[in-house]
């Protein structure tokens, strides 16, 4: 059984069809990349899965159960977490408290506050934020805030973590560090990742499978090599002559 299943999911904003009957599945423990130009519907897809927005049609199923009608907090407790493309840290709280909030809510029930704290602190370290644990989240650099988004999402204990452009705007060296961090976090926890990324190289290196959205429709999916060789993708990304 697939961990995540999208069945003909659509989203309409007034006259605009942001997502048009998108169907695909994500197997547990894999890393799946979501590719597509601006306006392809990638972030809308995340919002629908996480419950921030309601689909206009179709169904999202997680671990065999429908998520239809659930609020974001209920979906989070089922084991789905996401980061935000435009970061949304709890700016007035420390890095440690941001991650602790993820641990206290989400899917895990800790026997004591001390255990939750310990788990959160461990994730702060793993995410490479150990030196900044007591700083207010709002004072971190963009790179730090992107790491914090990842740490907070993972702290919820989610099985599916959706990463929305966590490498956008980072320096090449920072991208490499982030890739290493993501791989380590994913392997240590057996996480399933759904990743939106504009840094194409990074997406190809990270993902086992890629789905390609174009103007709200799913136009290709497969391994990074298959997708790169797909004629439709070639036409859209590299021009007609390729």
């Amino acid at each position: 059984m697939s961990l995540l299943e999208l069945v003909a999911v659509s989203k309409r904003y007034g006259g605009v069809l942001a997502l048009d009957q998108v169907s695909f599945t994500v197997e547990a423990g894999t890393i799946v990349g979501v590719m597509g130009a601006n306006g392809a519907g990638k972030t809308t897809l995340f919002a629908l899965i996480a419950g921030n927005e309601r689909p206009s049609g179709g169904e999202v199923r997680f671990a065999g159960r429908s998520l239809a009608g659930l609020r974001p907090d209920q979906i989070a407790r089922r084991g789905v977490a996401r980061t935000f493309q435009v970061v949304r840290p709890f700016a007035g709280l420390s890095v440690r408290e941001n991650v602790l909030a993820g641990a206290l809510f989400g899917t895990r029930a800790f026997a004591s506050a001390a255990l939750a704290r310990r788990a959160a602190d461990a994730i702060v370290e793993e995410a490479g934020l150990g030196g900044q644990a007591d700083r207010l989240a709002g004072t971190l650099t963009l790179s730090g805030q992107k790491r914090l988004e990842v740490a907070r999402a993972i702290a919820t204990g989610a099985r599916l973590v959706m990463l929305d452009e966590v490498m956008a705007g980072l320096l090449p060296a920072e991208v490499d560090e982030m890739l290493a961090t993501l791989h380590a976090l994913q392997r240590a926890r057996g996480l399933t990742l759904l990743v939106i990324e504009h840094v194409m190289q990074a997406l190809m290196r990270l993902s086992q499978r890629i789905v390609v959205l174009h103007l709200g429709a799913l136009i290709a999916q497969g391994s990074p090599e298959e997708v790169a060789a797909d004629p439709e993708v070639q036409r859209l990304y590299f021009g007609e002559t390729a």
């Binding site: 921030n52 974001p72 907090d73 989070a76 977490a81 840290p89 709890f90 709280l93 919820t156």
Partner: peptide, 17 residues
């Protein structure tokens, strides 16, 4: 903790559960 998260960013708070 939940109230502080709501104060800082209600959408993010809801999304972590």
């Amino acid at each position: 903790h939940g109230l502080r998260a709501i104060r800082e960013d209600e959408v993010a708070a809801e999304t972590i559960g």
